[in-house]
Design a binder for these strands. Structure first.
Length: 638
RNA sequence: GCUGGCGUAGCUCAAUCGGUAGAGCAGCUGAUUUGUAAUCAGCCGGUUGUAGGUUCAAGUCCUAUCGCCAGCUCCA
């Protein structure tokens, strides 16, 4: 019998018998890979491990160490879940069940609403299926046969999907009596799915369209080892502990009230954060050559017609009337800023003009999307508009990039991802302007040596943009900053400047925000720091704790001294033991505690306890103040 | 907006089959005078989100409503 040559992962060629499966080859030749392999890649195509080898080829083995491999793993788990649901509730119709970034889901249509109480039952059934080690078998059918097959099974969602496929070859995976339309590849058998957990249930529309049927979605996660699953669940726990809604309550930062859903009530502690951050941003405005303006919250409706918001943004706006005239509450700051620009003539000598505004905007978000500080209906933008001459555009973009970097680093964000979004299908302005602006943004990023991804067709209708996604301390990405070139507004508002030639010219406008929404950014900071703010942001920086009543006066003096030097302190003179007060200060995540007992009141020192670290010894009050001041100035976290 | 779940004291939660709301923490008062994450005792605290309904009886069942939570195509 002839043999074939197979090369695995760029290794040596191996002689194999035709008809052998990849799995069989691995088992004998690569026992280590055999353990972690989930699929293989042949000439750029993903295939099952039970694929039969019938000719010479190069193979790449996909393991769970790479995202693609985890995708296969999760996808197979979602099949097992669907199989379990189908066996528990036979009338269930299957929609789709893909692997997603952190796990998988499957959408079902069934009459009975699923609840979290059903999850253990489904998990139990899944364990049975896994135990049986049912092989996943791939079959290919013609389009017509596939439609007939799923029609017979009453799986009309599958039929709908197949009908839209361009090719005539449809793959279906079988294990035991379960069959699912699937591109594959899949794990060789169900027992590869070792450790899993179903996480939650939610509603989802068929194809994400609210006009379609509502399906029930189950989310889950799985891993090849228990320790990986446990680590993942711990990470979810960690994220839960950092949830800014929870910390906002625990640290008494803000609240929401039924009287104003989506509108933040800032408490005194939260106000410290809010103002500290805002003051910091003001410093940055001036340091980077911005002038600050403030424009009204409600403005005549005609302005919003002119700006285009009426046509493009009406659904998200609030309206009111003043003296029988129609007014609108601003959802964005730019029109107001444009009016300020237009209020006086401008010379090329003044350009660029950089106007910043801490603008309070209102946007009517659908009730279902409100989410703590992350999605609110009223928020403050650290907005700015840069009006410049076309040849200044690149320099200004680079200056903005530098400013954004500086600001993020002050908050401990050193990693971010950047996307450049280009002209969308529906847009205004001529092609050469777009091309020019896209080139400018790209070249600015290149000159700063910042890697970025291009998001084709995702730009705003009025111009291309750069978006920043910052990575927080537990690895999550948050979209914050944005730099947008705008051709539309200067046109609509007929902005002008007088050039060196004495003629009137149209300026280019850049919109930029660094935090985006101050509310949202504070939410991100709360989660990023887990509520343990660096001292410059901490609402309370130090608690003064007298050990007993007789140290009260000495402690009070210390307290006065600290307050006078501008530190935000709290005096805990309650009739409680020191340990009790320390515990409370730790739970409130206050960075420093000053303990005053006999020794300290005698030598005018303080016994310093640092959050998380514990007792760090005694020192003179003045020395302690100097240390704190220095730490504040450095804006370090811990 | 839509689907599902949840709303009990300031907070975290209990209350069996529908049988007449309870605990810890917090708060207040008192005792204790404390050396690096909870001293002890007593007291206060509720129209069970709101409005209707069913029932001899509703936190519990039904309807409506408000709010909160999970989500609402990372293309089989």
């Amino acid at each position: 019998m002839e043999s074939i040559n197979v090369r695995i992962d760029h290794g040596d060629e191996q002689r194999c018998t035709p008809g052998v499966t990849i799995l069989e080859v691995l088992k004998i030749q690569h026992p280590d890979l055999f353990k972690s392999a989930v699929a293989a890649e042949i000439e750029g195509r993903l295939v099952d491990l039970i694929q039969v080898l019938d000719r010479d080829m190069n193979l790449r083995i996909i393991t769970t160490d790479e995202p693609v491999g985890m995708g296969v793993f999760w996808h197979s788990t979602s099949h097992v879940m669907a199989q379990a649901v189908k066996s528990l509730f036979p009338e269930t119709k299957l929609a789709i069940g893909p692997a997603i970034e952190g796990g998988f889901y499957y959408d079902f249509a069934l009459d009975r609403p699923l609840t979290t109480d059903d999850l253990p039952r489904i998990e139990e059934k899944m364990r049975e299926i896994i135990k049986k080690a049912q092989p996943f078998v791939r079959n290919t059918l013609s389009k017509a046969d596939a439609i007939a097959f799923f029609e017979e099974r009453g799986e009309h969602f599958k039929v709908e999907i197949i009908q839209e496929f361009p090719d005539d070859i449809i793959s279906v995976y079988f294990n035991d009596g379960f069959a699912d339309l699937c591109r594959g590849p899949h794990l060789p058998s169900t027992d590869y799915v070792k450790h899993f957990k179903l996480l939650n249930i939610a509603g989802a529309y068929w194809r994400g369209d609210e006009r379609n049927a509502v399906l029930q979605r189950i989310y889950g996660i799985s891993f090849p080892t228990k320790s990986l699953l446990d680590a993942h669940l711990r990470q979810l726990e960690e994220a839960k502990k950092r949830d800014h809604r929870r910390l906002g309550k625990e640290l008494d930062l803000f609240s929401f009230q039924v009287e104003g859903p989506g509108f933040v009530f800032w408490h005194p502690n939260g106000m410290i954060l809010y103002n500290t951050i805002q003051n910091y941003m003001r410093e940055m405005f001036f340091k980077h050559g911005y002038q600050e303006i403030r424009t009204p919250i409600i403005l005549n409706e005609t302005l919003w017609h002119r700006s285009g918001h009426w046509d493009n943004y009406k659904e998200n706006m609030y309206f009111t009337s003043v003296d029988d005239q129609a007014y609108a509450v601003k959802p964005m700051n730019c029109p107001g800023g444009l009016l300020v620009y237009k209020n006086s003539p401008h010379s090329y000598r003044d350009m660029p003009i950089k106007m910043a505004e801490m603008g309070l905007v209102h946007r009517h978000e659908k009730s279902g999307v409100l989410h703590g500080l992350f999605r609110v209906r009223q928020f403050t933008q650290d907005d700015a508009h840069v009006f410049c001459m076309p040849d200044q555009l690149e320099t200004e973009v680079i200056r903005i990039i530098d400013m954004i970097t500086e600001v993020y680093e002050a908050f401990g964000f050193f990693q971010y991802q950047i996307e450049l979004s280009t002209r969308p299908a529906r847009s205004i302005g001529d092609a050469s302007m777009w091309e020019q602006a896209e080139k400018v943004l790209q070249s600015a990023l290149n000159r700063k040596g910042i890697p970025f991804e291009i998001n084709r067709g995702e730009g705003a209708f009025y111009g291309p943009k750069i978006d920043y996604h910052i990575r927080d301390s537990i690895g999550r990405l948050w979209q914050c900053g944005t730099i947008q070139v705008d051709f539309s507004m200067p046109e609509r508002f007929e902005l002008e400047y007088v050039g060196a030639d004495g003629e009137r010219h149209r300026p280019v406008m850049i919109h930029r925000a660094i935090f985006g929404s101050l509310e949202r950014f504070i939410g991100i900071l709360i989660e990023h720091y887990g509520g343990a703010f660096p001292i410059w942001l901490a609402p309370v920086q130090c608690v003064v704790i007298p050990i007993s009543e007789k140290h009260r006066d000495a402690a009070s003096d210390t307290m006065t001294r600290l307050t006078e030097s501008g530190l935000r302190c709290r005096f805990d003179a309650r009739n409680e033991k020191m340990g009790y007060k320390i515990r409370e200060a730790e739970m409130q995540k206050i960075p420093y505690m000053c303990i005053i007992g006999d020794r300290e009141s005698q030598d005018h020192t303080v016994s310093v306890r640092k959050r998380k670290t514990g007792d760090v010894g005694s020192r003179p009050v003045e020395e302690f103040i100097a240390t704190l001041k220095e730490e504040m100035a450095r804006r370090t976290s811990d």
